[in-house]
């Protein structure tokens, strides 16, 4: 019975294991190998072992710089805007409407980011907000194709992903703690600083990490709202693989992106773990 069931379970795992091997592990290894190779005249790969592609990374410095400035900035902005909303949903909103409000937060995140970002071309474009501003006398404001437009698109696209983990951590804790703090005469701000905020740190950590990771690979928002002037590493990668067809150099750029991502996230997780007194309830789903 034991041996038979173990075979059944192996068979159950087989398709998924093969799929992950062929479509994830091997392709990522190919990127790694290509990043040390030489570019073939037609754009393909010639086996070699050199660090030239990595040494050439400064040629795309602007893309890395934009990503490394706007990704943390966007994460921070999303956090500041998401926190009060998550607080409202977890603590202030009545139980009756809470589920509906939550579903209304999650649903946009799963619908086409392409189409939702596209709407901002109207809103930020010449006949959108700048025209409204002209009516009240503020002239010459340009929003579309600026870093501000990209930042607004980022906050809009990633807000749901930030709200949810913070909501989960705030919703979990015992609300009697708030009453106790109030009964003992603590002013609301002190209650927030000493009770609510520390307890919601796991949610903040998860939200920031998710948003930051996804932002590092962002392509669509800068492509649509940055108009070729504000570009991320993602935009450089599209150019390298689909236009200039420089696969080996592109692989080095992709590998560098993943490495920067992993390093930032692991440093960040260490800091958070230390700050929160070795809490381990940081969940992803």
């Amino acid at each position: 019975m034991q041996a038979k069931s173990s075979w059944t379970h192996r068979l159950l795992l087989l398709p998924a294991a093969l799929w992950l091997l062929v479509m994830l592990v091997l392709p990522l290894l190919v990127v790694f190998v290509f990043s040390f190779g030489e570019r073939a005249p037609a754009g393909g790969y010639i086996p070699a072992f050199s660090f030239d592609n990595y040494l050439n990374l400064p040629a795309r410095l602007t893309a890395f710089k934009n990503t490394l400035i706007l990704a943390p900035l966007g994460t921070l902005a999303a956090l500041l805007i998401a926190y009060p909303l998550a607080y409202y949903l977890a603590i202030k909103a009545s139980a009756k409407i809470r589920t509906t409000l939550l579903v209304m937060i999650i649903v946009p995140f799963w619908t086409s980011i392409l189409i939702r970002t596209y709407a901002w071309i109207y809103i930020l474009g010449g006949r959108g907000i700048p025209q409204l501003l002209e009516w009240i006398g503020i002239e010459g404001v340009r929003l579309i194709n600026t870093p501000t437009a990209v930042l607004i698109g980022i906050i809009y696209g990633y807000l749901p992903l930030m709200v949810f983990p913070i909501y989960v951590s705030l919703e979990k804790f015992d609300k009697r703690l708030l009453e106790a703090s109030e009964d003992l005469g603590a002013p609301p701000l002190k209650t927030f600083r000493d009770v609510t905020l520390p307890l919601s740190i796991p949610g903040i950590a998860t939200g920031c990490m998710l948003v930051f990771i996804l932002l590092m690979g962002e392509f669509l928002i800068p492509a649509l709202l940055g108009g070729g002037k504000v570009f991320f590493v993602g935009n450089a990668l599209v150019d390298l693989f689909l236009q200039s067809r420089n696969w080996t150099y592109g692989s080095a750029v992709a590998a560098a992106l993943v490495i920067i991502m992993l390093v930032t996230v692991s440093i960040y997780m260490k800091l958070i773990m230390r700050g929160a007194g070795h809490r381990e309830d940081v969940s992803l789903v």
């Binding site: 992950l20 994830l24 091997l26 990522l28 990127v31 990771i213 590092m216 993602g234 696969w247 992709a254």
Partner: peptide, 21 residues
């Protein structure tokens, strides 16, 4: 493997699949 599949940027999955295939 599951964790990597979910966390790695879609753009990297796209690139890796393209050049590998």
């Amino acid at each position: 493997a599951i964790y990597i599949a979910i966390m790695i940027p879609g753009i990297v999955i796209g690139i890796a699949t393209l050049i590998a295939l």
